[in-house]
Design a protein around this nucleic acid. Structure first.
Length: 584
DNA sequence: CGGCCTTTGAAGGCG
DNA sequence: CGCCTTCAAAGGCCG
């Protein structure tokens, strides 16, 4: 189990600590020293969520917080490094539109997407030293054994470029210091210095405080002497495991041994070889590679620092489990489509939260890996080739098929012949100069959308439809939309209009008998989608936009559009574009 | 077994 | 500056 704290003093800082560490830290007078912060923010149980979490066995989606108190996340603009600041200025981040302070607390989904977020702001930290305590190996306080590590950090603490020597111990990141990396730079073998009590799978996202497990008890324990805490951890945590086991399917409850194997590696670091591997193997690799001297080895095992998650990714991470649960759909491609749709259906406020989170993610990432560049992860640098070849023949583009699938209501089924074509289909690859911008960028075809008979715009009735961004710039501060150059603005727009096969699925109550039957069968995912449509997704409005209702002031079309959609749905029989796509 | 699919957004590189 | 490309997550699918 990992406990995540949001420092009340430094709201922007959230710390993810294993209990043992917490105990230690507490005693050391670390964060917990001094007057108790009025209501520690919250405890997150479990934190598997780290977007950077390398271990594939743990579903990152599950984020359950024991909310003690939710301070506003506050990223101090002043603390931003100029680089980021500049970028932010241009970024879609709502930051400049929306206040820096984002009440993450009230995340509608009760799941905080910011798990991995460890503050970017150092301000509230004692600039001093990271608590000198805690040699990484063994927690002196708890006595909980940790895998030994070599004197020289290098193999296990591969430092990010330019950070050499800056990170004395794994806890470094817990005590961010100005200009210093905050995360422990772990490497190839993720160390698992601290026991982890619980790991819960993605589907655990529903595992909230509402459950009967006495998380508050755990919380209480955190204020007790370390020994008691330790005792609690060793006795109660197993109970938690039992609790989970009794409550959730086995596959959702990680093996108990994970208690001692899970560490808190920085999520963003993944070594090529260990990526997705279990913690056990990590430990093993630790020993095996122990004396590997060669720099080759080092380079070879050079940790892969992942890109920080963007807003949508964060959203996906959080919502995926829910969608999976609702739809009994597992195929990511299909799920992502649904999520993409939902994303656009989110209110600006909702999206703003994710943008803000993403912004903080980037900031944190930047602090952690000052020299890191996205370029580092480009093909070649990470070993295996990840190149995608998505280019398709001019005629068969996805986009086209998308339209085809398009549920665009009130529009005749878009088949090839008499339907307007997107730029790609219209002009072909060799005449890209004639394409509209979005098409050239592989975005939704504006021309097509705006054109007549486009799959897009269902007439005004729902034209405002779903996610259509407010026409007025003042409407809401959704950075991506308002603050961005035209291209960006168009995108949302087009997206809004974008015919989405799944749109129906996700946004409206399915007309019971959608065309699904025809298209669906072809693919499992399609079927799933269908199920979804009939099932969970209808509820989406409720679950998806809990906050939407209150946000009426924002003049959010999305919510209302949802309703309007229904009618459309009835009229439009072209639902499962998703399916169609795959059909091709 | 590795890459694809699928989504959006961020970021680097190129012209 | 605009555009293109790649990557981030995820898990089933496919060659």
């Amino acid at each position: 189990m990992k406990v995540l704290f949001l420092s009340p003093l430094c709201p922007s800082v959230s710390l993810s600590l294993p209990p043992a560490m917490l105990a230690a830290k507490r005693q050391d007078g670390g964060l917990f020293k001094g007057p108790p912060y009025p209501g520690y923010p919250f405890i997150m149980i479990p934190d598997l969520t780290s977007p950077y979490l390398p271990n594939g066995s743990l579903s990152p989606t599950a984020r359950t917080y024991l909310q003690m108190k939710w301070p506003l996340l506050d990223v101090q603009a002043g603390s931003l490094q100029s680089r980021q600041a500049l970028k932010d200025a241009r970024s879609p981040s709502p930051a400049h539109i929306v206040s820096n302070k984002v009440p993450v607390v009230q995340h509608p989904h009760h799941v905080h997407p910011l798990t991995p977020l460890i503050t970017y702001s150092n301000e509230h930290f004692t600039p001093g030293n990271p608590p000198p305590h805690l040699p990484a190996d063994v927690d002196p306080k708890t006595g909980i054994p940790r895998p030994p590590h070599p004197p020289d950090i290098s193999p296990y603490y591969p430092l990010s470029p330019g950070t050499v020597g800056q990170i004395p111990h794994p806890l470094g990141w817990l005590v961010p210091q100005q200009g210093q990396p905050v995360y422990p730079i772990t490497t190839g073998g993720f160390r698992h210095p601290y026991p982890t009590a619980l790991t819960v799978n993605a589907s655990m996202s529903s595992f909230s405080l509402k459950t009967s497990f006495p998380f508050n008890l755990l919380w209480g324990k955190l204020h007790e002497p370390t020994t008691q805490l330790h005792s609690f951890l060793t006795h109660t945590i197993p109970s938690m495991h039992s609790f989970l086991s009794s409550r959730f399917p086995p596959h959702m409850v990680p093996p108990h041994h994970s208690l001692h194997t899970t560490g808190i590696p920085h999520p963003a670091i993944v070594t090529p070889t260990v990526k997705q591997e279990s913690s056990q193997s990590d430990v093993g690799s630790l020993h095996s590679s122990k004396h590997q001297d060669s720099k080759k080895e080092e380079e070879k095992k050079k940790p892969h620092i992942k890109k920080p998650l963007n807003a949508f990714m964060l959203y996906m991470k959080e919502m995926r489990a829910k969608v999976v649960a609702e739809c009994t759909l597992k195929e990511s491609a299909a799920i992502n489509q649904i999520l993409g749709r939902r994303w656009h259906a989110l209110s600006r406020e909702e999206q703003a939260k994710y943008y803000e989170l993403a912004r903080k993610e980037r900031q944190l990432h930047m602090q952690l890996y000052p020299g890191w560049s996205a370029r580092d992860n480009y093909v070649g640098s990470y070993g295996k080739k990840k190149k995608r070849k998505r280019d398709k023949q001019p005629g068969e583009t996805n986009e086209h098929s998308e339209c085809f699938l398009n549920p665009c209501l009130s529009l005749p089924p878009i088949t090839d012949a008499n339907t307007p074509k997107k730029c790609r289909a219209l002009f072909g690859l060799d005449r890209q100069s004639l394409w509209c911008k979005p098409c050239r960028r592989k975005k939704k075809c504006v021309r097509y959308i705006q054109g007549e008979g486009s799959c897009v715009s269902p007439p005004s009735s729902d034209g405002s439809l779903l996610d259509s961004p407010p026409s007025s710039p003042n409407m809401l501060a959704s950075p991506p939309r308002d603050s961005k150059p035209q291209t960006e603005q168009t995108q949302p727009l087009s997206l809004t209009l974008k015919p989405d096969p799944l749109a129906h699925l996700s946004l409206m109550p399915p007309p019971s008998s959608l065309v699904l039957t025809e298209t669906a069968a072809s693919k499992p995912s399609a079927l799933s989608a269908t199920n979804c449509q009939n099932g969970a997704l209808d509820h989406q409005p409720a679950t998806l936009q809990p906050s939407a209702a209150p946000s009426s002031s924002l003049a959010q079309p999305s919510t209302s559009s949802l309703h309007s959609h229904n009618s459309l749905a009835g009229t439009q029989p072209q639902p499962l574009s998703l399916v169609t796509k795959s059909l091709e």
